[in-house]
């Protein structure tokens, strides 16, 4: 589905991604683990075209997308859920969803506001509320729902559990499992290992802009020295 190889990126003259490679298969949930500043968000932004990749290939659904504009990449079926939520605070819940709306994708059940409200019941109760007057957890759900309105085949979820109360994190984990059941592929970035292992099939560890380890969640749980070295838990 998504295959990244040799991806490099710079901020000014600082090398922030160096030869990053990772894969996400159809219907798979892969987690990108690493500390703050390790390059997780930048990897996602580079895949999405929000940070121009300096080198490397990004193949998505059979086509090369590296160097394309974010809107073109989104139109090919790649959804992006940013770390800081970034909902449109001046727009209502329904209007936020409208901004994300794109035509249905062949082979996937099209998302409608009704179906999204079934997935995130608390959003259904506040359809006309401006995004600025929602709690952090509700905003996080809205930003995922907004991206789903584009009927993506794969979504990039940047730290969905950051700053959320433990009960809300649990609900978020349920929602991610439900999306996986729908057949959606997901690339997730996380620092919270508990959360990552609850929802993912495979893990990739990034540190100082380079991939250090890749394998299944079961392997990661068995590899104490890897967790200690890179995740310091």
């Amino acid at each position: 589905m998504l295959s990244v190889s040799g991806l490099s990126a710079y901020y000014g003259r600082a090398h922030i991604l160096d030869d990053v490679a990772l894969d996400v298969g159809p219907g798979e949930v892969v987690v990108l683990l690493g500390r703050n500043g390790a390059g997780k968000s930048t990897t996602m932004k580079a895949i999405m075209g929000l940070v121009p990749p300096a080198a490397g290939r990004v193949r998505f659904d059979g086509a090369e997308i590296a160097g394309r504009e974010p809107f073109e990449i989104a139109r090919r079926g790649l959804g992006y859920v940013p770390e800081e939520r970034r909902i449109f605070t001046g727009l209502s819940v329904l209007e936020n969803l409208e901004v994300g709306r794109r035509p249905p994708t062949a082979g996937l059940r099209p998302w409608t506001p009704e179906r999204l409200f079934a997935l995130f019941p608390s959003l259904g109760a506040m359809q006309d509320r401006p995004g600025g007057r929602m709690s952090g957890g509700e905003q996080q759900m809205l930003t995922i729902a907004r991206t789903l309105m584009g009927n993506p085949k794969l979504i990039l979820l940047d730290e969905p559990s950051e700053g959320l109360a433990p009960v809300v994190v649990e609900r978020m984990a349920e929602a991610i499992r439900a999306l996986k059941a729908e057949g959606l592929s997901i690339l997730l970035s996380e620092q919270n290992l508990h959360f990552a292992q609850a929802v993912s099939d495979r893990a990739t560890i990034i540190e100082k802009g380079r991939i250090r380890w890749s394998g299944s969640i079961a392997d990661l749980l068995a590899a104490d020295e890897v967790r200690e070295q890179y995740l310091s838990v």
Binding site: R86, F88, E95, V99
Partner: peptide
């Protein structure tokens, strides 16, 4: 109109609107 909604969204966060598939 949808155009108007997109414009109001872009007023707040252009980059995000682009990442949602809108040719900003």
């Amino acid at each position: 109109t949808r155009w108007g909604t997109l414009v109001r969204a872009a007023t707040q966060d252009r980059e995000m609107v682009g990442a949602l598939g809108v040719n900003q």
